[in-house]
Simulated assay, not measured.
Amino acid sequence: MARITTIKLIFSVMVLLSLLHNCGKEGRIVKHKFPYMVTVTAPKEYPIEVHEGWLLNKDKKLICGMPRSGKENQGWANDGTEAGQGGSEIPTHLNLTYIAYAEKKFYTVDADLPSAKILEGFRKGFSLVEVPNDQNIYTDVKHSTYDRFTVGAAPGGVIVVWLSAGHHRVEICRLQAKEIFIDKDKFRPSPDPDETQEQFFNTFYQVAVKDSVRNDISKNGIPFGLWDKYRTKYKYRFILKPYDGKDKIVFESIRYYNGEAVIYYPQDLSKQDYRVAGLPYNVSISFTKYNTEIFFNDKELMRIFENFKQKYPDKPVDIVLVPTFMYNEIALYVECNGEKIKLEKAKVDKIWGG
């Protein structure tokens, strides 16, 4: 009798362990599912359009197609058009074929994705903070995560993948597309046997690319390599030099030229830490009473930051804001190792509050 009881006990323990093991596996599977929409974007000056493409899972099975939603040129810092394509599985492979109108070429990329990094990005997510409308006080910190998987296509076949949600965006990887021949009649909605491939490219170059951009291309060419330069990161921070020395920065929402974006709250800013990041495209900053939005010039910033990097390779950089009394104006300069350079082309778009 004791032996039977012992056998039953062992059997029960084995069943329980099996259930726990399976629950653990199921739990991991659930945790690996993060719903997202898929979008495709491109720089505003250099529109593209998807021909075909898809995302695959770890078993090389289809997650979804790449959205075909017409011309895409929302900008490097913005997601593309949502067109009903998405999933919740972690993608492991990307296939995308598209036309680059300004280059008069079709490109294709067929590459594995860093699935572990994608999963880590979804899991890490970001802090989401509710903001009272009447004052710059940030409370109720919550964890949130990304809900868009965005593929950017820049001139030269530069492909960058981001995870994004609202004002949060993080780069996952950079890939390289290659030029490919696609019969224009397989791309066009309606075949035109009387049109040559060259005529097709020339027609859509005129239609899809703005006059000002075409004029710039005829004079200076396409700035190949620029979007890889944007991916260079520097160690810097924003700091405030108020007239009375008492004010401080309590909020930063930054969009970077490399396509990333982030929000920092008081708990992130209190230590005035330096961060390694791409050059800022624009920043919305709140002080204790006032707020401002600033846009930066990429060429001016690249020249200054590269100059400092060569002269002071181990020194961090400050982007300094100097407001006047009552914050009617804000002057800007960049400082490294005691050397200061005024930002001539940065634009303080607006100042409000008080």
Rank of each mutant, 00 (worst) to 15 (best):
K311F: 00
G24C: 10
N258T: 03
G221L: 09
D185M: 10
L301I: 10
L301A: 07
I48P: 02
K33W: 04
E52S: 15
L343H: 14
Y146E: 06
A346R: 09
Q135A: 06
A102F: 07
P191I: 01
M37A: 14
T6P: 01
E260P: 10
P280M: 04
Y256W: 10
M37V: 14
N57T: 13
N307Q: 11
K241P: 00
Y256N: 14
P114N: 13
D110Q: 12
G221P: 07
T97I: 05
F122K: 06
G87N: 08
E120F: 08
P316W: 00
E329I: 06
K61H: 11
E300C: 03
I137P: 00
N282D: 13
K309Q: 10
Y101T: 01
K117A: 13
K210T: 09
K340D: 01
F181H: 09
K342H: 05
I7C: 09
G245Y: 09
Y312N: 00
L20Y: 12
F308K: 00
F296A: 09
F224M: 05
E103L: 04
E329N: 14
V283F: 09
Y101F: 11
S164N: 02
V262G: 01
D216K: 14
I118H: 11
I239F: 02
Y98S: 02
V131S: 15
V207T: 15
K233W: 01
V30H: 15
G84P: 13
E260R: 09
K299S: 11
I48H: 04
M14A: 14
G53S: 03
F238D: 04
M66A: 14
Y230F: 06
E49V: 02
H21P: 05
G245I: 02
Y146N: 07
N202H: 08
I182T: 13
T97A: 11
A83L: 05
D183T: 02
R3W: 05
K31P: 02
K58R: 06
L343F: 06
H93K: 15
V283C: 09
L163Q: 08
A208K: 12
K241L: 08
L9H: 09
R28S: 13
R275K: 09
Y333W: 01
A111R: 15
T145D: 06
F325Y: 14
K71A: 12
K235C: 02
F200H: 15
Y264I: 00
Y46E: 01
S218F: 08
L17H: 04
S88C: 11
V283R: 07
P155S: 10
I294V: 13
L301W: 05
R255Q: 08
I294C: 08
A77F: 04
E300D: 11
G338P: 00
V160P: 00
G278S: 11
V213M: 13
L279Y: 05
G27T: 03
E300I: 02
Q176N: 11
E293N: 15
D59P: 01
T288K: 12
N202I: 06
Q74D: 14
V322N: 07
V38S: 12
